[in-house]
Amino acid sequence: MKLLTHNMLTSNIIKGVTKGFPLVINPSRVEVQEVDFNPDFITRVLPKLDFTALKQAATQVGHADKLPEALPETADFGEDLQKTLHHVLLQVEVLEGELVCPETGRKFPISNGIPNMLLNEDEVS
């Protein structure tokens, strides 16, 4: 699970959970893999993401060093920040660990890089 994917995920499918976002990451194995840098892709995707959640996730997996507290107001981030975002969003991957619902504490296992978000029948909203 890359942090880009994490940014889309929520536990609001659980009965009684309203937002379920962002999910807390308890990583036990994190890997960094090189991915071709595509600044256009970063620029296009960023508006669709929740930066606060990304910052929190990056902190939880230990890759938040160069990430600012907030994104600059300007449209042009500069290459450094784009590369940082590229790294955090696409190169860092949580292979083992768990996701935790911020409201109920329900845990979802991450195994071989795949979060399992299935619920038991009685948990579904």
Partner: peptide, 11 residues
Amino acid sequence: FVADVLAIPVR
């Protein structure tokens, strides 16, 4: 990710 179409864990 693994999920059910009846409960898609996406914002």
